[in-house]
């Protein structure tokens, strides 16, 4: 069984992935946010150093920040949040 998650990329993360702002990926059932980071790094080599660095890249799951490892569900939306700079 596999699950499908929607991925949103912003700012430097979007550019590092080749200017992709939205995509979806399949993961094995039971995959966590850590799995997700590894799969994204393999799929987008330009993004790998950023997506694997938890200090530089935060994730938001269904529009909420998450800091610890979480098990993903089918239909989740994950956003890649590089350091913000609003204001």
């Amino acid at each position: 069984m596999s699950i499908e998650v929607k991925v949103l990329l912003f700012a430097s993360a979007r550019e590092a992935a080749g200017n992709i702002s939205e995509t979806s990926i399949s993961l094995d059932e039971g995959a966590t946010t850590a799995t997700f980071r590894r799969v994204m790094a393999e799929k987008y080599p330009g993004l790998s150093s950023l997506v694997l660095d938890e200090d530089s890249l935060t994730l938001a799951l269904n529009e909420e920040y998450i800091e610890s490892e979480v098990v993903l569900k089918n239909g989740d939306t994950i956003a890649l949040i590089p350091p913000i700079s609003g204001g």
Binding site: F10, A11, A60, A79, I81, P82, I84, S85, G86
Partner: peptide, 14 residues
């Protein structure tokens, strides 16, 4: 509000 906006609202500037 402005301090917290800069700490946590997902907006980026180039």
């Amino acid at each position: 509000l402005i301090d917290e906006l800069k700490a946590r609202i997902p907006i980026w500037k180039r």
